[in-house]
């Protein structure tokens, strides 16, 4: 068993978990934050993307033990004081989702990517979203939402 102490969305947690526990299982099963999804479980689809110490990672491919001492942000930590994060707002307004399964991961990936590249070109957006798969939208409106979020956030 491993003792894992970490901050999730600003709240300190401490869990005793099996050494083989994945970060996504700690988030969903132990911290009961089910906004982070498990899609492929083989690190391809990006639905499980969260921020670990400020950068986007696939939480199905990180051991809980590796996240000991880390600060994690999940989709539940994005809205502040009842106000959606600009990326969430843009996804809503641009209709950047249909079934919504990939959306939490998409939003975490996009918000991570915009930190590095606040004014991306279309090509850079495609490259930045390579780790996330959406099977509904064809990505058109997701790219629109990224551009709108970039605009809002640079104001």
């Amino acid at each position: 068993m491993a003792k894992v102490e970490l901050k999730i969305n600003g709240v300190q947690h401490s869990y005793d978990v099996e050494d083989r526990t994945l970060l996504v299982n700690l988030i969903r099963d132990h911290a009961q934050l089910t906004g982070t999804h498990v899609g492929c479980d083989t690190s391809q689809c990006g639905a499980c993307t969260v921020h670990m110490n400020g950068v986007a990672v696939k939480s199905c491919t990180v051991l809980a033990g590796q996240a000991d001492g880390a600060e994690i942000t999940t989709i539940e930590g994005m809205a502040k004081n009842g106000k959606l994060h600009p990326v969430q707002q843009a996804f809503t307004e641009c209709h950047a989702l249909q079934c919504g399964f990939c959306t939490p991961g998409m939003i975490m990936a996009v918000s991570g990517f915009l930190k590095d590249n606040p004014k991306p070109t279309d090509e850079e957006i495609y490259h930045g979203l390579e780790g996330n798969i959406c099977r509904c939208t064809g990505y058109i409106n997701i790219v629109k939402a990224v551009k709108q979020a970039a605009k809002t956030m640079s104001k």
Partner: peptide, 9 residues
């Protein structure tokens, strides 16, 4: 290499 999340790790 890979995708952004993979490059971050």
């Amino acid at each position: 290499i890979g995708d952004p999340q993979v490059r971050n790790r």
